[in-house]
Computed example of a mutant assay.
Amino acid sequence: MVTKLSKLERTATVHQDNLFDSKYQSDGIYYEDITFQDILFDSNYRGGGLFVIDSARIRVNNCFFIHFTTDGILVERGHETFISSCFLGQHSTVGADKGEKDFSGTGIDLASNDNAITDVVIFSAATGVILRGQANIVTGVHSYNKATYFGGIGILVKAAQNRIANCYLDFNAIVIEDPAQVHVTNGYFLGDGNIVLKSIKELDGQFTTIDQVVIDQNNVNGMSLRSTVGELTVAGNGTQWVADFSSVLMFPNRINHVRYSFYTQGGLVGFPASAVTNVSNNVVIVESEKAVNGVVSIVVDQHNMIMDRTVFFTLYSQEWIVGAGILMGVN
């Protein structure tokens, strides 16, 4: 146990291509139910802090990692390593360090599935957190490890089916490579903090499908906010209400689902018929059969759900109506 769960002294990490094959996750577990608590890991600039390999149900709680050159914590294979209430940094700093542009290494590298990072601060490193495995959850992370301006990354997602919630990206970004089934929710982004969707394969044109990727309920400071979900309210007296989501939505010319509510004002008698008559270029148009003083609230999203087919809105071949809260196409 000491040789594998020990201070990591190395210059590079080799990740196997079949790292997440099921046999590696289920048949190669050698260590179980180990707790690291209230420990100072000082690597003295000679390597990394903690290397957890082929293990299950490992807890790293209330630990401090400092002076690493590779990884503060590296988890390879296995599953269910829980990292909580920890501080990690290559150099001792409280931010705006004059040597920030030279920070290197990674705070936490999860090359494993089914792990959790909770209430962790990464205060100096080139990359705060790397997710190479699936089904991991990152909650309450504050990353001010290295600013985007100097090439730093707060959280780097290199695998599908990961969740990032309630995190504070402090002058750096969440970078998601080839995004698939990734949830980023309730985040706070300061300075150059943002979300970058990156293809590691060369793309010619735009994304053709957005499959189970949700970016919603985030906060930013000093930047425009983009999301895969948008909600607008339009008031007017007439027969047409236009909601332009182009400044809100992440992807151009892509709306997969529409829901709207129609409120009439001024004591109108009866129930005027209304319908969504056009959805294109991230603009939704709702029209009524006669002029009314009304308010239309519209909610749209850009992601596909499980077992969901991409909806293509074509004004000339189909009429779209809303009934019982479900968008239906009528030929």
Rank of each mutant, 00 (worst) to 15 (best):
H15A: 10
G47Y: 03
Q134R: 14
F271D: 13
G222T: 03
T127K: 14
V141Q: 03
G95A: 02
V120Q: 02
S55L: 01
Q217Y: 09
E76T: 13
S6P: 00
D21V: 07
V283Y: 03
N113W: 07
R46P: 00
A116Y: 09
N194Y: 04
V138M: 04
S261V: 11
L131V: 04
Q265D: 14
Y260K: 02
D308L: 00
N186I: 01
L74G: 06
T239M: 14
N278W: 01
S22M: 10
V184Y: 02
A125T: 01
T228I: 00
H91A: 13
Y30N: 13
N113S: 12
A160T: 08
A111C: 12
E177F: 00
Y31R: 05
L74Y: 10
L8S: 09
S297K: 14
Q240K: 15
T148R: 12
F312C: 06
P272K: 06
T228Y: 03
Q25N: 12
V229C: 07
K101D: 13
I39S: 01
Y260N: 03
V182T: 13
D42N: 15
E80I: 04
N166R: 13
Y149S: 14
T209K: 09
L40M: 07
G187T: 07
M223F: 03
N237Y: 06
T11D: 11
V286M: 05
Y31N: 05
Q318D: 14
V2L: 06
A160I: 02
N136D: 10
L249G: 07
I164F: 01
I321G: 13
S199F: 00
I130L: 10
G152P: 05
S124N: 04
L203G: 08
G294E: 08
I210R: 06
I53V: 15
I195Q: 01
V157D: 04
N221V: 12
S43G: 05
V175C: 00
I255N: 05
A147K: 14
L50G: 04
L197Y: 14
W320S: 11
V121G: 01
V258Y: 00
A135N: 15
G151N: 03
N61S: 11
I39F: 00
C167T: 08
N304G: 13
L169M: 15
V52W: 07
F150H: 10
G72A: 01
N281C: 00
V94N: 11
T81A: 06
K158L: 15
V129N: 02
H91D: 13
E177S: 02
E202R: 10
F82T: 10
N278D: 15
F189M: 13
D21Y: 12
A273D: 09
V295E: 14
F171T: 15
E100I: 06
A291E: 15
T310A: 11
H79K: 11
K198R: 12
T239Y: 02
V184A: 13
V229H: 08
K146G: 03
R309W: 03
T13M: 05
D216G: 03
H142C: 07
D119A: 08
A291W: 03
K201S: 11
